[in-house]
């Protein structure tokens, strides 16, 4: 792995939906092993920037580099190779509701590893235990609460032990206790492995816990970027307003 290269790099990325410009000339470099939080008001392109990083959305202009490789022009097969190195936790977990929770976690392993069935099961089970769902392997996703789904989604995102983890609003819509548990999981993850974390949130306490660096998006542009302590002193009103809020879901 090319450690000297940044894990993720956005180069002057722009993206419009119809006439609305969602990302406007965004450039951002995230070194491997760092964790950043992307903050901003709803609809300012936070989720879009995550989906652009994993190639679910192709930018209109600009480049997206994952570990130094520009993915904007890749075929779907090459893109698959890159995606195996990235975990993605969706806002509503997006568990496959036709298979059990455990199989959801096992799914990436079944698709992308040559492991035997037993081995896959034990790994999936282990991942579920890590997120506190050790006994829920055979339940269907519809039987889980929102927080449990998120944790299962996190377990699935981590199944292939990706060096990069993207998380879209990991604590949104959860009660503070559950949200805290998720944050704790992410922090643990960051500490135990050198995973690069990119988290979209508008929960400032979470962001302070998780992130080395914060990035503020507003109307498709990065208006501020830096360590939490530095941003506390920002002279941009919007940023200061954000930083002082307790930012519930």
């Amino acid at each position: 792995m090319a450690t000297d290269r940044p894990a993720v790099e956005l180069r002057a990325v722009s993206k419009s939906f119809g006439t609305r410009k969602v990302l406007d000339d965004v450039s951002l470099t995230i070194e491997a092993g760092r964790s950043i939080c992307i903050l901003g008001r709803s609809g300012t392109g936070k989720s879009v920037s995550l989906k652009t990083i994993i190639g679910l959305i192709r930018p209109d202009t600009g480049g997206v580099l994952i570990e130094g490789e520009d993915i904007t022009g890749l075929s779907s097969r090459e893109l698959s190779r890159v995606r195996k190195r990235i975990g993605f936790l969706f806002q509503y977990a997006a568990l496959f509701d036709s298979i059990s929770v455990g199989e959801n976690v096992a799914f990436p392993l079944r698709r992308h590893s040559d492991l035997a069935n037993d081995e896959i099961r034990s790994r999936a089970s282990h991942l579920l235990t890590q997120v506190g769902l050790g006994r829920e392997y055979d339940k269907m996703p519809s039987d889980l609460s929102g927080g449990m789904k998120k944790r299962a989604g996190l377990a699935r995102a981590l199944a292939l032990q990706p060096p990069i983890l993207l998380a879209d609003e990991p604590s949104a819509g959860l009660d503070p206790v559950t949200a805290g548990e998720i944050d704790a999981l992410l922090v643990t993850l960051k500490q135990q492995s050198s995973t690069t974390l990119i988290v979209v949130t508008h929960n400032i306490p979470s962001a302070r816990t998780i992130a080395d660096e914060l990035v503020f998006l507003h109307e498709g542009r990065i208006i501020a970027q830096g360590a939490p302590a530095a941003l506390d002193r920002s002279d941009i009103p919007l940023v200061r307003q954000f930083m002082t809020s307790e930012g519930a879901g």
Binding site: K51, I54, G55, L56, S76, L79, S80, R81, R83, K84, I86, F88, F90, Q91, Y92, A94, L95, F96, D97, F107, P108, R111, H112, R156
Partner: peptide, 14 residues
């Protein structure tokens, strides 16, 4: 609508 299709793609599945 529940992003499961995106999730499949993100899991490197066509």
């Amino acid at each position: 609508v529940t992003e499961q299709i995106d999730a499949l793609e993100a899991t490197a599945v066509d």
